[in-house]
Amino acid sequence: MTAPLETPESEPHHGSAVVTETEDRRDGGAGNRSLRQIAWQRFRKDKVAMTGAVVVILLVLSAIFAPVISWLLGTSPYQYHSELMDPLTGGALNDPDDGASGIDPMGGISTDHLLGLEPKTGRDLFTRLIYGAQISLLVAFGATVVCVVIGTILGSIAGYFGGWTDTIISRAMDIFLAFPILLFAIALTGAIPDQAFGLEGNGLRVGILIFVIGFFNWPYIGRIVRGQTLTLREREFVEAARSLGASSGHILFRELLPNLVTPILVYATLLIPTNIIFEASLSFLGVGINPPTPSWGRMLSDSLQFYTTSPHFVIIPGLTIFVTVLAFNLFGDGLRDAYDPRSTD
């Protein structure tokens, strides 16, 4: 009963009722391909989007296997190397085995420490970055799931039923969009004790961040789902389901929802980098993850006092956030173009 999403199909030649094999090969055989196959072919041709996808995959894998990578390198994100640091400036010292002395201008970069050392503490910067990716991606993906679930449910209900239901949900969206989420997140994370809701420490912090970011950002995806539902509810397959006596729940979950998967998936990939920046902003302000657990925002905040003596400590965390957000945005834009029915192969 579910209507397939619209896909561009090859049209037969006007001079003949039969499309030849040569013509079908020339147009890519679009008539014999599913929407997913067509989208993958378009996405594969987009080199920029493919580059973003590769960076995203590498980032996710490095976060998942961070303990393994740390073990292979023989270092820990919590291990101090104060003997390698200058006690006055906090900068990394040159290796005396190399016949040099004084502050290392490269920040302690070596085969043992691929990105150098943190000023003053001497902790390995590379392992702290990949462990920080765990926090950033966990919060970003968790908050995105919360956004998608709430936004999809309320957006589809508003678009399908309309009337006063649509009015109430739409006004709720306006209120949430006008809510000062950053100020609320700062106040809430600062007021929450170390133990609450059966959680404690950074486990509680992560849960609070996921809730705050996800619960107050659902209207963005809710509006998209509502608009798509308004269009789909007038389609023939919905009218056919009504004529057969299908309930509203059946139509919403069996007829409309499968046709909303693609726009939801595309927008979710564009929402993840926004959530990464939000988590980094809270950690930068000191109300995110508690130290010494690595966090990109906290590392960037700590680096500001050493930007004259250890500029690598400022550049590397900031560049990591920049590349991550850019990769997710390029990946999301590529998915959006690939699934756009108005696109051409």
Rank of each mutant, 00 (worst) to 15 (best):
S303E: 06
A158I: 04
F65K: 02
I276C: 12
A187G: 11
L260Y: 01
L199T: 09
D302K: 01
M299Y: 07
T229K: 02
S248R: 13
E9Y: 02
E200C: 03
N329A: 15
P341V: 09
S310M: 08
F216A: 14
T51H: 00
S170F: 00
H81A: 06
D333N: 10
I175H: 01
M106N: 12
L335V: 13
D104Q: 06
G198M: 07
H13W: 06
G332T: 11
F161G: 04
I130C: 05
I103W: 05
L204T: 05
I224G: 11
F65S: 09
L182W: 01
G122F: 14
T262M: 04
G207E: 08
F216S: 15
V238I: 14
A92H: 13
G207K: 03
L188Y: 11
S101Q: 03
G29D: 05
M173L: 09
G190M: 06
E6V: 15
I130R: 00
R226K: 09
L129P: 00
Q41M: 07
I276L: 15
V55F: 03
T293C: 03
P311S: 12
L270Q: 09
Y339N: 07
R226L: 13
A17T: 14
T165M: 07
S243V: 12
W218A: 12
R226Y: 06
T274C: 08
T111E: 13
H312P: 04
L35N: 01
P273M: 11
G28K: 02
R336N: 08
G155W: 00
L115Y: 06
T320H: 01
D337C: 05
I289L: 11
G107D: 10
L72M: 14
A66N: 02
M1R: 03
A30Q: 15
F306C: 05
T324P: 00
G142Q: 03
G151L: 05
T121D: 08
I213D: 05
I276A: 14
I315L: 12
F284E: 11
G159I: 04
R25A: 15
L257F: 12
E6P: 09
N202M: 10
V146I: 13
D345N: 11
G122T: 14
L270R: 02
I186Y: 02
G122K: 11
H13L: 15
A63Y: 00
V18W: 02
G190R: 00
A240M: 06
A241H: 05
V206L: 06
S295L: 11
L137F: 12
L252Y: 04
G151H: 01
L35K: 00
I169D: 11
L93F: 09
V148A: 15
Y78T: 06
R42G: 15
G29W: 01
G163P: 00
S62P: 04
L5G: 12
M1L: 12
I210Y: 01
P119E: 13
P317G: 11
M85A: 11
I157V: 15
T165C: 10
M85T: 09
D27R: 05
T308Q: 04
P96V: 04
